[in-house]
Simulated assay, not measured.
Amino acid sequence: MARVTIFPLAGAVLYPGLQLPLHIFEPRYRAMVSDALARDRLIGMIQPQRPAEGAALYTVGCLGRIGDVEALEDGRFNIVLEGETRFRVLRELTVTTPFRQVEAQLLSDNNDEVLAPIERASFEREARRFADAQGYVVDWDQVGRLDDLSLINGVSQIAPFDPAAKQALLEASGLGARCELLVQLMQFFGRTSGDDDEDGATLQ
C-alpha cells in the first residue's frame, strides 16, 4: 500500500509509459506540485466521478512522476507527468494539506503483453475508419512502427471520448481487453461524431 497525493481531473487519463503535459495554476495544485518536487516527484492522476468540489473518485488512477518542469514567475507550473503504474484507491485520507491524498494499492501490469496479429490488424482498420470520420490527419507509417502497448495505451489516453469511457479503458485488465474495448468505443463514438468534442478538449 502507498500514500498517494492525487490530482483529480475529469477527462485527463495517464497510462504507464506515457506522458501527460499539465498547466498548473490553482493555488492548491501549485502547492501539490511544490510538495511533490520536495519529496518524491510523484502525483496520482485520477478522475472524479462528477465535476464538483470534493466529488467521489473513480477507483483506478495512474501514478506519474514529474519529469520536465517549468516554474513560472507568478507561481504557476508547466509540468510533464511520466506514467509509472496504475493504482487502486483503498480509502481517502483525512489531511491538512490543501490537496487530497489517498491510501492506494499499486497495480502490477504486464508490460510485455502483445496483441495477436489479427487483433492488431482489426484495431488499425477501425482506427483508420475512426480517424477518417473525425477528420484527423494521421501518419499511419509511424503508427505501424509503434509497439502494441504504446499504440493501444497512447490512443486510449488521447482519444476524444467522454470521461466514463476513458475510465473504462484505464480499468481494463490487460492489453487485449483494452484493445477490444477501444475498438468498440471507436465504433460507438464514430456513429455519434461531433457529440464529444468538448469532452475531448479537456485532455490537456
Rank of each mutant, 00 (worst) to 15 (best):
L106G: 04
E124N: 08
P117R: 02
E53N: 13
A31Q: 09
A10W: 07
F130W: 07
R28K: 13
L63A: 01
P16V: 10
Y15Q: 02
L9N: 05
L22A: 00
L14T: 05
G75R: 06
G11R: 04
E119Q: 15
R50H: 13
P117N: 06
T97V: 07
F7I: 10
R86D: 02
T85R: 15
V95M: 07
R129F: 13
T59W: 03
A56W: 06
G64C: 02
E124K: 13
T59S: 14
Y15L: 08
A71R: 14
T85F: 12
Q19T: 12
A38N: 05
G54L: 15
R65H: 02
M45D: 02
A116S: 06
A131P: 01
G11Y: 05
Q49H: 13
R50G: 11
I46Y: 05
G17T: 08
E124F: 00
E126G: 00
V114H: 00
P8H: 12
I66K: 02
T94L: 11
P51G: 04
N78K: 13
E84P: 09
Y15P: 01
P117Q: 06
R88I: 03
D68A: 07
V33W: 00
R65W: 11
R28F: 06
E103W: 08
Y29N: 04
A71H: 02
M45N: 02
R50D: 13
V80S: 06
R91P: 05
R88A: 14
I66R: 01
G83V: 10
G75D: 13
Q101F: 02
D35S: 11
G75F: 14
N78Q: 11
I43A: 00
E53W: 03
D74T: 06
L42F: 14
A36C: 00
N78P: 01
L106C: 05
I43P: 12
A56M: 12
V102C: 04
T97C: 01
P51T: 06
D35P: 00
R100K: 12
G67I: 08
F7E: 03
R125K: 11
G64I: 04
A131Y: 04
L22H: 04
R128H: 12
R129K: 10
L93T: 00
E82P: 08
A56C: 09
L18M: 08
R128A: 14
P117I: 01
R91K: 15
L22D: 07
F130N: 05
A38R: 15
R86L: 01
G83Q: 02
Q105F: 01
V95H: 10
L57K: 11
Y15M: 12
A36Y: 00
T97P: 15
R39H: 12
R86I: 00
H23E: 08
L20F: 00
E84R: 15
I79H: 00
V80F: 00
G67E: 10
E82K: 12
A10I: 15
F99E: 10
E113A: 14
D40Y: 04
H23C: 01
G75E: 14
F7W: 01
V69P: 04
